[in-house]
Design a protein around this nucleic acid. Structure first.
Length: 920
RNA sequence: GGGCGAUUAGCUCAGCGGGAGAGCGCUGCCUUCACACGGCAGAGGUCACUGGUUCAAUCCCAGUAUCGCCCACCA
């Protein structure tokens, strides 16, 4: 084996081997365990969030596979309507054309081409992460099967009256020229103004003042509203005002919606361009005047001077005209929420169009109940609150998009505009007896991407066919996803799954946090702070990293800043850490719910951990080659019994933590066992056994067996998190251990009962550790070279401790580097020494004339102070009658025990301090 | 406006009703026959603040402050 762990040398080789052997595919045996991957954008690339999420899913999948489950982790990608179409449109733009010139069919060919070309990038990257997904079952949301499911669901919902077409206000993206759903609109506070306009009363008796943040919409005003109880205006209700700039009189209406305290208490009503005004318009039968084109310019319904002006140019002009007419009362600075499209980032307009909607309330009801009664559990549970909050206030879902890339809506129109919905045109004609003489035109629009995503858990298993896969794996076991798509995706999957697949789509929803940069910033291209998971795996030099971060920026002026920050943070680029180190880092950081700052220090630490395992394995393999297949358990040494017992506990912990989705705690347990117990103590404790000629062969064999058996089991424990290094080592270790399996992937996950718990061994070994630590501490603080052999004297040695000394002196001598351990009898006068305490026993390191009295006194005094402080607290507690009376018996007993041992410790320390004083 | 979360060592984070923890960083010593991606020893914290509950609070409750996120139609 190499002296240090080289991830690049093994990772890709093992992945290929596993995939070719078919280990990722469902075994067909055992309890089904299924995870559906949240399908990434087909043209996307792997980012830190994916890598994190994939690590979680793969760890769970590998764990359950090792436990014998029939596992299916199913991969796939999403067509991501708007996002993908935008990318291709940008390419066309660069080539000097656009989709309209190309036409729909040719454009779609281009998108498919782009999908083919870039679509497997993310699959390749998923492989680099070690993801054990069933590639044979990879799906794409626009596959034939999934498209069928989409049509099926659409038709069924339509037939039940749960999908309808309606003319309403929608969020209109004037750049993309499509409707978007409420969820796709991001409202952020921006600075703006509040313009106060005077609307003259038709009666000529003055004017009303209305305030608006959007002056241009006044061209579409069809009323002014006041509160019904507002005495200032009640006499005016029913009268009209003359709408300035327009040759129209509009009514003054009374409506509860108006807040009389705000502004003047008068509100201009533009039913065609504001969601609230639309409602008011409905209540008062006001006309709707649409004054905008699809580009959000002023249309022909507005007075001539404004036609054709962009909305913001029109705003300027209108304000100028109000000033000219002396109808502008005042302008205030004002903070307002500006709605922007989440893709285009342009301000969206409420816009009156025909769209398709899903009536969601009837679907939401059972979906709410499923979470309420625990058929679906959120982890952590508080996300269920977020879910309920949204589900209880859910609005109908606008599912049509004026795009070309996506599932085309399965609705046809005849020349009279009648609507026919069916799975395809032939079905529509048959169902409605429409012969070929009638021309049918299919709806031009496509469905919201999330419509097909909502069907993902069952459409990917073959629904509407009742396939074996569907029967085995639906409902799936757990959904692993981020909180940002609970509404977009999770809620809709639950609704659709319950409606069409007859059950909840998953039993648990594990919500993980967002990966942020080291400063807590969201990683984004425009901030220039993205880390590519592959750069962490393979390493990257500084120039490449800078180039990656600064090319293709939307705001090129940020380049110098990004470059500077990058050069400062990564002066030497990023070293190669390997997939396992990255995965272990994600696992260790995956505590519940909260966001994660990705810290390079952590990944470096876990890279070192992989190397530690590697070297521990080198040691073990070096010492166990050809070891007998069995051993006599009676010949096991104390350290053998101890490490087996510790491993048993560690296995319990690891399993328990993984089952509860606490990968961070599982990682921690395994890390600490491996490093602090197996490496730091056990491997060191085997050296005296294996090197000492006096130790029996049977005992050596038992130790060799323990070395290899613990290593082999530990590798299995760690495999779900760090699959590559564990497989590489396991292949060698398994042979020595006598395991003939072909891969660690399919070995059983260790059981706690595989190794004997042994409380007695743990107690005894703790005593040995205490002894060694005591001597080391003296060495460290008294500046005695670690290599210098020492003699120690023991005082106040109890009978059972004498027995331990006889039995385990070998370990003490080796680990503490002692030549001689001798026991002082009562009355023996000890030489000048540095002292360590172990329970009631004193360990004395004779210092002859070398002792630094001051240093030793300081050292003891420090211990004394600490002990005295602790004792003081405990005595205060015990002096409290209420504590003694009310605290549980066990707690009181424990405190009394601590009290007496501290008293003993203090007495001994004081004695030593007094002795030192004699030397001064 | 409503809801959720965070505040613990220099940094990144665990923990939790009865003795403050890890990794990284820092200090000192050590090229010891698995590992310098290492070993040994060590320094470092009024667990944001104020009250309350309790025999006992970093932990539970209430409030305050700061930071963050989500939802919401106030022109």
């Amino acid at each position: 084996m190499e002296k240090s762990y080289q991830p690049a040398a093994i990772e890709q080789r093992w992945y290929k081997t596993w995939e070719q052997a078919g280990y990722f595919e469902p075994s067909g045996n055992g309890q089904p365990y299924c995870i559906m991957i949240p399908p990434p954008n087909v043209t996307g690339t792997l980012h830190m969030g994916h890598a994190f999420q994939d690590t979680i899913m793969d760890t769970l999948t590998r764990y359950h596979r090792m436990k014998g489950a029939n596992t299916l982790w199913q991969p796939g990608t999403d067509h991501a309507g708007i996002a993908t179409q935008m990318v291709v449109e940008r390419q066309l733009e660069a080539a000097g054309t656009n989709r309209h010139e190309l036409g729909r069919d040719k454009f779609l060919d281009k998108v498919w081409e782009w999908k083919e070309q870039s679509g497997n990038t993310i699959s390749k990257q998923l492989r680099r992460m070690g993801s054990s997904v069933a590639w044979s079952r990879e799906r794409f949301t626009m596959d034939e099967g999934l498209s069928k499911a989409v049509a099926e669901v659409f038709v069924k919902l339509y037939d039940e009256g749960l999908i309808y077409r309606g003319k309403r206000l929608v969020n209109w993206d004037p750049v993309l020229h499509t409707a978007v759903s409420d969820l796709e609109v991001i409202s952020e506070e921006e600075s703006g103004h509040l313009w106060h306009f005077r609307y003259p009363l038709s009666s000529g008796d003055g004017y009303l003042v209305v305030a608006t943040t959007r002056p241009e919409t006044m061209l579409g005003d069809t009323a002014v509203a006041v509160h019904p109880d507002d005495e200032r205006y009640s006499h005016l209700v029913g009268q009209t005002v003359d709408l300035p700039l327009c040759d129209r009189a509009i009514p003054i209406v009374a409506d509860d919606y108006v807040d009389p305290e705000f502004g003047s208490g008068c509100v201009k009503i533009t039913p065609a361009h504001d969601f609230n005004d639309y409602e008011i318009g409905q209540r008062h039968q006001l006309p709707l005047i649409n004054i905008l084109t699809v580009d959000a310019a002023i249309n022909e319904n507005a007075p001539a001077p404004y036609r054709g002006l962009d909305r913001y140019a029109a705003r300027k002009q209108i304000i100028a005209d109000f000033v000219r007419l002396e109808l502008l009362e005042t302008i205030e600075d004002h903070k307002l929420m500006v709605p922007r499209g989440d893709r285009s980032h342009v301000v969206v307009e409420p816009y009156l169009t025909d769209q398709w909607y899903v009536k969601v309330a009837p679907l939401a009801k059972p979906a709410i109940e499923a979470v309420e009664d625990g058929r679906i559990r959120f982890i952590p549970d508080n996300w269920s609150k977020t879910y309920f909050e949204w589900m209880h206030n859910i609005q109908d879902w606008c599912i049509s998009r004026q795009l070309w890339w996506g599932h085309r809506i399965p609705a046809w129109y005849d020349e009279q505009g009648n609507i026919y919905v069916g799975r395809d045109e032939a079905e529509v004609r048959a169902k409605h007896a429409i012969d070929d003489s009638v021309t049918l035109r299919q709806d031009e629009d496509v469905l919201d991407t999330w419509f097909s995503s909502a069907l993902w858990p069952f459409s990917t298993l073959g629904w509407p066919e009742q396939t074996d896969a569907l029967k085995s794996f639906y409902p799936t076991s757990v959904l692993v996803t981020g909180f940002d798509i609970i509404f977009f995706w999770v809620a809709r999957m639950i609704m659709m799954g319950m409606k069409f697949a007859g059950d909840v789509p998953f039993a648990e929803v594990y919500i993980h946090g967002l990966i942020r940069d080291q400063d807590g910033q969201k990683m984004s291209k425009s901030k220039g702070n993205v880390l590519d998971p592959l750069d962490l795996i393979d390493g990257v030099d500084l120039e490449t990293l800078v180039a990656k971060r600064t090319t293709g920026l939307m705001q090129p002026q940020l380049k110098p800043k990004i470059e500077k920050a990058t050069r400062k943070q990564f002066p030497d680029g990023i070293p190669e850490f390997g997939t396992d180190a990255l995965r272990f880092t994600f696992a260790a950081l995956a505590s519940t719910g909260r966001d994660i700052r990705f810290d390079l220090g952590r990944i470096e630490g876990y890279r070192n951990f992989c190397n530690k395992i590697w070297n521990a394995a080198r040691y073990v393999l070096m010492n166990t080659e050809g070891v007998a297949a069995t051993h006599d358990a009676a010949a096991e040494s104390l350290p053998d019994r101890w490490i087996r017992s510790r491993l048993s506990k560690t296995i319990t912990e690891a399993r328990d933590h993984i089952e509860h989705y606490r990968l961070d705690l599982a990682a921690k347990s395994l890390y600490e066992f491996t490093w602090n117990e197996y490496c730091d103590w056990y491997l060191e404790l085997t050296k005296p056994v294996l090197q000492d000629e006096a130790v029996s062969e049977a005992s050596k064999t038992a130790t060799r067996r323990t070395l290899i058996e613990v290593l082999e089991a530990l590798l299995r424990c760690l495999h779900p998190m760090i699959p590559f290094v564990t497989e590489e080592i396991w292949q060698r270790a398994a042979k020595v251990a006598g395991n003939t399996g072909s891969t660690i992937m399919l070995q059983p996950y260790p059981e706690p009962t595989d190794f004997a718990a042994d409380g007695e061994a743990e107690t005894q070994l703790e005593w040995i550790m205490g002894f060694v630590l005591g001597v080391r501490q003296i060495r460290g603080e008294m500046d005695i070279s670690p290599g210098k052999p020492l003699n120690v004297l023991l005082q106040n040695v109890a009978a059972d401790e004498r027995a331990r000394l006889d039995e385990h002196g070998l370990y003490l001598r080796k680990l503490a580097r002692l030549v001689n351990i001798s026991t002082l009898e009562d009355g023996d006068e000890p030489p000048t020494s540095a002292t360590a305490l172990l329970g009631g026993m004193k360990i004395l390191v004779p210092m002859a004339g070398l002792i630094d009295v001051v240093a030793e006194r300081d050292r003891l005094q420090k211990q004394l102070d600490r002990a005295a402080g602790d004792l003081h607290k405990i005595e205060a507690k015990l002096a409290n009658e209420n504590f003694v009376a009310r605290a549980p018996e066990a707690v009181v007993t424990k405190e009394r025990g601590r009290q007496s041992s501290l008293q003993q410790e203090i007495a001994q320390l004081e004695e030593q301090v007094a002795k030192l004083a004699e030397l001064e």
